[in-house]
Design a binder for these strands. Sequence first.
DNA 1: CCACGGATGAAACTTACTTTCAGAGGGCGT
DNA 2: ACGCCCTCTGAAAGTAAGTTTCATCCGTGG
Lengths: 304, 304
Amino acid sequence: MAKSPKISASHETGGLIVHISGLLPSLSPAEQRVARLVVADPADAARRTITDLATAAETSEATVIRFCRSVGMDGYPQLRIRLAAEAARRVEPPDARVVGGDIPPGADLAQIIATIAFNDARAVEETAEQLDPAICEQVVEAIGAAGRIDVYGAGASGFVASDFQQKLHRIGRIAFYFPDVHTALTSAALLGRGDVAVGISHTGTTSDVIEVLEQARARGATTVALTNFPRSPIADVADHVLTTAARETTYRSGATASRLAQLTVVDCLFVGVAARSRARTKKALEATAEAVQSHRVGPGRRRG
Amino acid sequence: MAKSPKISASHETGGLIVHISGLLPSLSPAEQRVARLVVADPADAARRTITDLATAAETSEATVIRFCRSVGMDGYPQLRIRLAAEAARRVEPPDARVVGGDIPPGADLAQIIATIAFNDARAVEETAEQLDPAICEQVVEAIGAAGRIDVYGAGASGFVASDFQQKLHRIGRIAFYFPDVHTALTSAALLGRGDVAVGISHTGTTSDVIEVLEQARARGATTVALTNFPRSPIADVADHVLTTAARETTYRSGATASRLAQLTVVDCLFVGVAARSRARTKKALEATAEAVQSHRVGPGRRRG
DNA sequence: CCACGGATGAAACTTACTTTCAGAGGGCGT
DNA sequence: ACGCCCTCTGAAAGTAAGTTTCATCCGTGG
């Protein structure tokens, strides 16, 4: 019977529900009815108004307030918020997403979205984890000091290469990308000491890219490879090897996860280079942003 | 005209904060002040009373209510609860990685990598969370049944557009991408009922893309917009609006996070379309893979 | 049996939330 | 340029929610 109201409930950012169940026997009957409702479905309780909850517990609002105080809350709104938070936290992670696996034949869009997003996000995170900052640093240094940067890539990796080129260009670096192998070879032949050549190939076996990188290296340029497989042939012709960490789902050989991983690496390099010369970079970025301004229309608030 | 597209506000069980940031530019100034407070610290906002929040945002309670309605809530209490839930669910990043924020001036490569990867992964996850499967389904249906698909995008979004085109093409769909506005317009003019036009623009304000999409729609094609801002002008010319959820770091206006988010959406659509006709798709993929085989060298693929 | 004290709900009260309304300001067509 | 219209905005009125007070009820111990 010994009843001590207002149990110090200071620290439980977490187990509010647990805390309440613990206090349950020490509560008065009417308060217990409230408590049971709350414990049974916190999320639902959070949605109710105090009057509503009181009615559901077959008691008065006053008792609900007393209950709030009994479990250490200031008042009903605070309880509500805590309950909402609590309920949100105990949401189980969505159902079985096959890591790196294939999409099941009968999958609906929701499943597909969950699976893809999961794998994509994983690829990005894991790539970042295994990326060697020291090597990145060297590459950033080289690019930052380069007279000229060539970026090579074929097929899917071509997009990434092109993207990198555009980014570098945008901050005032002299960078090139060539969709065509022959042109790329020509360009590589004109590189020299102090220049940088970046070859991107997911498999690391794309002969075109390897060939071009080889040429660049022979001319004295610093060569960088970006691939998912560190011991693939492309590594043999690169001074610095950066790796992605994508486990590709067979079905989508469009290789999106790997491309996202590549883009992340490219982005890191880009920011690294940009950070080296902040002022100059900022100016360049602003100038380029301004340049496309006339091709934008007003923000357009619709909503009748 | 006035076929108003469905803004996927319905499906936000998850990314309320993200949803709000997407809507931010379409809000009125006073509401934006409120929104910014909310986005900056949801947990704190949930603790405040409406009067308190209004004061903090230097506006009136009425505006806060308007804000609640603008983002799809019934009223302030509901917003509070949702915010509390949201805040509880999000695990704070261990060290000070400024979410969506800028890279600190003195940052070393390791920090840069961590920050970028975090934001990139976040963008992918949050995009998937708020993506409406029902709308995706409609888009997939349309594309699957389309006689022809045009994909439009300018600048950074151009890469994504081009990527989507390539993917569709690879599974045997008739798809086009045009780097040039005039060519794109010409193509759009030749679309008709049953065809699909996809416009990609992060800001949703790229006039070139909007114009082309408008043209396509006028010719009877089904139009799809992919943007970060659901109430931007591009939404007005689209039958279906798909949204990404990237909070862009100012420094890297290369807009990588948003591009990753876009690629994720594109990938979902791609897999969705591919899944519709599995056998045919698989055959096409294998054929295209074989075609580039001769451009691959040696063993490469270590690790199994 | 009465005095006492905790438990409880009705009602008064306060605070928070919501709606209404009119003024300010900005854009657009004439 | 002018005036119209439409949107944004906060003040104030109005409503609903939350909180306090207090009288009552009921069981308990003197």
